[in-house]
Design a protein around this nucleic acid. Structure first.
Lengths: 147, 147
DNA sequence: CACGTTGTGGGTAAAAGTGGGTGGCTGGTG
DNA sequence: CACCAGCCACCCACTTTTACCCACAACGTG
């Protein structure tokens, strides 16, 4: 199981290529076969899964009820945006234009490791996101880590 | 389980390297493989976990609900700041610039052992923190140690 | 006082990040 | 059906950063 962590500000070139930070490479399972799946995330960001993590995510989607309209909507949205991409010789993934547009990404990205997935943000959008979180980190920690 | 204790005033060089006090080295489990994870602490300081301690912390984060926005915020914040670092030949960890900035650390640090983690403070910030704690050590002890 | 351990500083080779060029495949068009 | 344009994968080149190594001063201890 992956355990990505850390945040990195990297550039996106005009071909839509984003470097995979070296610190994150170490945690990619060989099972992923240097292949990643990018899709639309929660909030205005992208999720990037190594193929092996994506597969287990897909597995849990299969267990959703196909007769529930909400489940169908969720599944469609997730899969509709999903794009597979293999690392090039310089360990870069290519992100489709539609996904970059969705996340309002232009030249710079903030890459955040969040355990089994990697999040890709426009740095400014991420700052905005932080502002919308009214409670402080410490106070959320109190409720989240309560034992 | 680690049991760090004591406080130490050390220097930070211009590469962001901080020496791990010899007294604390003794308490690091071999399981940590000379690897540490630094992240944002509560209050304006940094937490430094040996890898084995970090892993058990990570385990408890995984059990949080990914569909709860507050949980996502907490997980993102914690992991976003997390940086792994292996000791160099002189038993030093490298702390990223962003973390040093967050804790307002420049040339000097106060290193405090707190059981399973090590805290890293700007000494002046720590003095300020003490002032904000209106209650005396003794009175807090009464409520904390109540059985 | 000698010696090992500890804390501090800096140089350098290797790795990581970034950008651009090229050839082959694909799909549309005259 | 031939041709052209656009796209994508692969390759190469340059710059910056990092991690590893060595050196030395301070300290405490036998």
């Amino acid at each position: 199981m992956s355990s990505f962590k850390g945040s990195y500000t990297y550039s996106v070139d005009n071909k839509g290529r984003v470097n995979l930070p070296a610190k994150l490479r170490k945690y990619v399972s060989p099972d992923a076969n240097d292949t990643f799946v990018a899709t639309r995330g929660f909030e205005q960001c992208l999720f990037l899964y190594p193929l092996d993590e994506w597969n287990s995510l897909e597995q849990s989607i299969r267990s959703l009820s196909p007769s529930d309209p909400k489940h169908r909507f969720f599944t469609r949205t997730l899969l509709q945006w999903a794009a597979e991409s293999q690392l090039d010789g310089q360990f870069r993934v290519t992100i489709p234009k539609e996904l970059l547009q969705f996340a309002s990404i232009e030249n710079e990205v903030l890459i955040v490791g969040v355990l089994e997935r990697i999040e890709i943000w426009n740095p400014k959008v991420y700052q905005e996101y932080l502002k919308t979180q009214a409670d402080s980190y410490e106070s959320v920690a109190q409720t989240v880590l309560k034992k």
